[in-house]
Design a protein around this nucleic acid. Structure first.
Ligand SMILES: [Mn+2]
Ligand SMILES: [Mn+2]
Ligand SMILES: [Mn+2]
Ligand SMILES: [Mn+2]
Lengths: 219, 219
DNA sequence: CTACAAAGTTAAGCATGCTTAACTTTAATG
DNA sequence: CATTAAAGTTAAGCATGCTTAACTTTGTAG
């Protein structure tokens, strides 16, 4: 089994690969994990030596099947813990990510399966992200667009929210822009790419940073 | 905050101090944590430098107030997790210790308090050991003796079981010698210090190793 | 196609927490 | 009280995972 650090590297590589396809730059990983580029180059060699990634100097990192399996397993642990902490222990939407970031590396497969069972084998976590199943399958997300690409006058439903920033989640909670919420786009402002949307019958203005992190489906 | 290793050292020191009083030898800690004596001597210096223990070369280790506070906090985490895993997730008596050994270092104070609350602020863990409370107080155990010191013909109740050995716990479960069980001492055998006891109306023979790890009160 | 900035890698070094081997202190024995 | 075995410590070294500083490669602009 890889170390805790290696698990986090593999998870991060998976994330970027999943978002942008293909191979991932050391700089992206470094920024994501808050370590130096040098540390990431170093680790890339070790991960490649152990067969978790393909790594060509200056060309980026790419998970092997073996590496992806680990990454998905860690994501599964992370997302099951998040859901469990909300449903069973009453933690809030914004608190669970940080907690899960540690628990994901310190739980036996056995316990994870117990949690999975207690939650009745859920497919999505509290941020709308798919929970990899025990057999390795990843539930399909609906066809989403970032809220920033939504069209004036149309109605949308919130289906996924990037969960890394506690500030973002706290802000969304305050605005009551929670998962599965239905909203309407009132106006897009070219000036700063902010947006006026209708939620709970009220018009609110949201920034570009927010609209890039919230994913929606058209109703 | 101390590292995970340091937390385990402090917990171990507390355990021996609590059992045998006074100061603890490096060899005891080393055996308990399955590291070399050298590693323990090394760590003793570091723990002393940080004010967690008093350490005199060749004279043993002793927790300071600061060190004891950490040790009790880790014990609290450990024992709350054990109870939680049994009560909420249906793990078995023998499985929880190993799991808790990792979880105890990777949970926020906040989450621990939530677990405490959900369990309604319990005083004892599944092995009968006291759970240090949030305010630092340690619930009092009844006056117990090791089963090995029990007297022929008298009746006793199981009140505490050392929980480090999964084999022991599995064996006890098989014999249905569980917490709070009432038993009667039929015979003590001087030959090998084994004992014949009555449990569920049946006579069973148990070894000295077992009777030294099970603690009882006289009924 | 050259020069140069940006991106990425290598090198050297540090902290932590271990190991084994060599050495020192303690305490029990005669 | 001198000897010696047991207990404990120090020394040297290793693995992991970081850091900063120096260097190399890549790709783009002139
Ligand atoms: Mn998360
Ligand atoms: Mn993590
Ligand atoms: Mn335990
Ligand atoms: Mn532990």
């Amino acid at each position: 089994m890889p170390s805790i650090s290696k698990e986090d590297y593999l998870k991060s590589i998976y994330k970027f690969q999943n978002e942008n396809g293909d191979s991932v730059s050391t700089a992206d990983i470094a920024a994501d994990l808050d370590v130096s580029n040098a540390a990431t180059s170093d680790m890339a060699k070790k991960l490649a030596a152990q067969g978790f990634i393909k790594y060509e100097k200056y060309k980026g990192l790419k998970l092997t099947g073996k590496g992806e399996k680990i990454a998905l397993n860690i994501l599964r642990r992370h997302r099951l813990w998040e859901l469990f902490l909300i449903k069973v222990l009453g933690l809030s939407w914004s608190e669970v990510h940080r907690e899960a970031e540690n628990l994901e590396h310190n739980t036996s497969e056995f316990l994870i399966d117990k949690i999975d069972e207690l939650l009745n084998f859920p497919e999505f976590d509290p941020h709308g992200s798919p929970i990899p199943q025990k057999n390795g399958e990843v539930p399909k997300l609906p066809d989403m667009i970032p809220l920033s690409k939504a069209v004036e006058g149309k109605r949308y439903q919130i289906k996924n929210v990037h969960d890394e920033s506690e500030d973002l989640i706290n802000y969304l909670t305050k605005l009551n822009l929670v998962l599965n919420k239905k909203i309407k786009i009132i106006e897009k402002l070219n000036f700063d790419n902010s947006m006026i949307i209708e939620n709970d019958g009220e018009n609110i203005t949201v920034s570009e940073k927010l609209t890039n992190s919230v994913f929606v489906t058209k109703i």
